[in-house]
Design a protein around this nucleic acid. Structure first.
Lengths: 204, 204
DNA sequence: TGCCGATGAATGAATCGCCATTCATCAAGT
DNA sequence: ACTTGATGAATGGCGATTCATTCATCGGCA
């Protein structure tokens, strides 16, 4: 009895505290930028003492990494899952694009950390590139190659380059959305992107 | 005579020293990232004393700004000039894309500062967005609108969105090039980008 | 049940190194 | 000698990280 009690009251505390710090850090990083953010700020927003942060994370940098790992992992997992029951490669690309923008559009602070902070140093960039981006580009490329096999997509273009083009276009939509003063929905932007990507901008 | 002498020996010195600092800073920022770069490093690479940097720039931040201003100004000027004698909107887009990647491809350090460091804080980003990016997107948009008028491009799509898509795709090419270990030429990548942008990825 | 020492999570003030910026001083040119 | 650009050692502040201390909880024992 006691042991169950202690588990259900203490354990969640631990998880909550770690979560609280990550959430607070996302907000603080998004507002001030990673390098201008003080660990003390994160602690204050999270409602813990400065030192407590170091019970859960080795360093300030590890906090940024954790934000990144958690989000990328979740995004890719969801993406795979959503793709499982789709066979049409065009629809696959639509889902990937749509999910991408929905995810970023749903949490502005997280989007800022991704679009801006994560790219603020070649070091983070390289890690991002190695870990998440590469995996992500692969999802796009594979869907595209399937489409090429099926005769739906042109075969005279390199699938890797194509994947970068599509990703780049989506990425720019996200970055623009973050920087824009106007508040509009990000997710629907995946539609015109896919349209131009698939059909081109030239008049028929 | 003397005054001419003094001009030709002292003035260039001043310009050279300022230039040297900017060049050094570009290199140092590119290698270490803005926030990890010490003013002392920049001074050493430039071959001047720490204090000398402050004879030419108000602060470390102003150095980054100057790199940015100088390059964007030059890029947009060259772009306008190259566009002047072209009438075909498709060719205009080709030139814009080609110039964009040629410029970045010609100076890897500068490219890193642009693609990575400049985006490392929403503050810089917003300034970049306001100053250079907006102007740049306008060039693309205007060329596209001309093409719409001429019946070359689809009229059912928003020119602003289109401009972002094209820019985003080019931007991703540049970022990938920077992060890639493989050394390939960046400029030629504008070709497949334009191809897909104009003709789409779907099979005919 | 009620008491006691052990445990370890949490705290936040103090430390310690770092680095942008300053400025007293120097040297070259006139 | 005076002006002016240049120097680089010294300063001052900042902020990530540490660690001595507090305090709530727990398990063993009478």
């Amino acid at each position: 009895m006691r042991s169950v009690d202690s588990l259900s009251s203490a354990r969640p505390q631990v998880a909550d505290k770690r979560e609280a710090i990550l959430r607070a850090a996302t907000q603080v990083f998004a507002r001030n930028g990673y390098f201008n953010s003080k660990v003390a700020d994160i602690a204050r927003v999270a409602g813990v003492a400065d030192g407590t942060v170091y019970l859960y994370f080795k360093s300030k940098e590890e906090i940024l990494h954790s934000i990144f790992d958690k989000s990328v992992g979740a995004a890719i997992a969801e993406c795979r899952q959503q793709l499982a029951d789709v066979t049409d490669p065009r629809e696959k690309l639509r889902r990937i694009a749509s999910l991408h923008l929905e995810r970023l559009g749903a949490d502005r602070d997280l989007a800022i950390v991704f679009q801006v902070e994560l790219r603020g140093s070649t070091k983070f960039m390289e890690e991002f590139s190695a870990a998440g981006l590469a995996e992500y580009l692969r999802l796009i490329r594979e869907a595209f190659e399937e489409g090429q096999q099926a005769g739906l997509f042109r075969r005279d273009i390199n699938a890797t380059v194509v994947a970068k083009i599509l990703f780049g276009a989506l990425d720019e939509m996200a970055t623009n959305w973050i920087l824009s003063k106007r508040r509009y929905k990000l997710a629907p932007m995946s539609e015109p992107v896919l349209d131009i990507f698939l059909n081109g901008a030239s008049a028929r």
